[in-house]
Amino acid sequence: MNWIHKDLLDIESLSPDEVRHVFDTSTRFMEINSRSIKKVPILKGKSVVLFFAEPSTRTKTSFDMAAKRLSADSFSLAATGSSLSKGESLKDTVLTLQAMKPDALVLRHSLSGAAGFIASHLDCSVLNAGDGWHAHPTQALLDGFTLFNHWQSFQGKQVLILGDIAHSRVARSDVQLLSMLGCRIRVCAPRTLLPRGIHNWPVEVYSSLDPACLDVDAIISLRLQLERQEAGLLPDLREYSSRFCLQPGHIQKAASGVKIMHPGPINRGVEISSSLADCGDSLILEQVSSGVAVRMALLYLYLTRSKPGQEIPEE
């Protein structure tokens, strides 16, 4: 498949065939990641800027490792320590980066739409590593890829997304991706953590965890940001966890072999019980491994799009 996109800003601009192609490509990089020498020279000479204007550990490390395994040079830039903290506008920072001619820029930003904004000012590829509440397409793709490795087909699978849907870019991107692939999606959260127009989304809404878990094939628990309590959306964490913390009892109502997922970082005992996070059906660490492969696939697809035919070397 000839990759036509310049930027990866959200999920909805991808077709199901393209998502499938990302999964197939990721599978080949999974194989490379299982080798003793995990580095291949396909992006040698390419430079990737990792611009994380919001704190991130796993996504940034994952992209960094993906770039290095493909032999690209990666450069990190954080908001603190960059000119942004000196009052430089985002546009000026980006134009400055542009002048250094990177091949791709990976952006994490606290404002929704920031990735699209940057992409409109840059000639190089922009990969959105999370913008505000808007989108986190690489997380959704790695979530989808992780499930794909277990399921092969998504048709008719029921997935529950549990937690703060309203303020979650992961939820928005997961709903778009998994419903595109044929899953039926449920969401479960207190009303204050659901978008006002949730009835317009392709999801079933539950306000109680027991019925929400009934017969589901996978549960994606989301991190609860502690600031939601400060904003008056919740009484306190104790009450939240008593209603919405995923417990072993809930899993028994789900389909057998239910997959437990979480984008991390986990608040153990708040949105997921500690024992479940570590249980045999938990894919949480597998998500992290898949994440590196998916991001290698994405860097490969976006950085070689002008030169189709660049082959991934066989062992």
Partner: peptide
């Protein structure tokens, strides 16, 4: 405005 578009764009709405 709070509604379909704000949900979609991931922006805080004003009802």
């Amino acid at each position: 405005n709070e509604g379909r578009m704000s949900d979609y764009l991931g922006l805080k709405g004003i009802p």
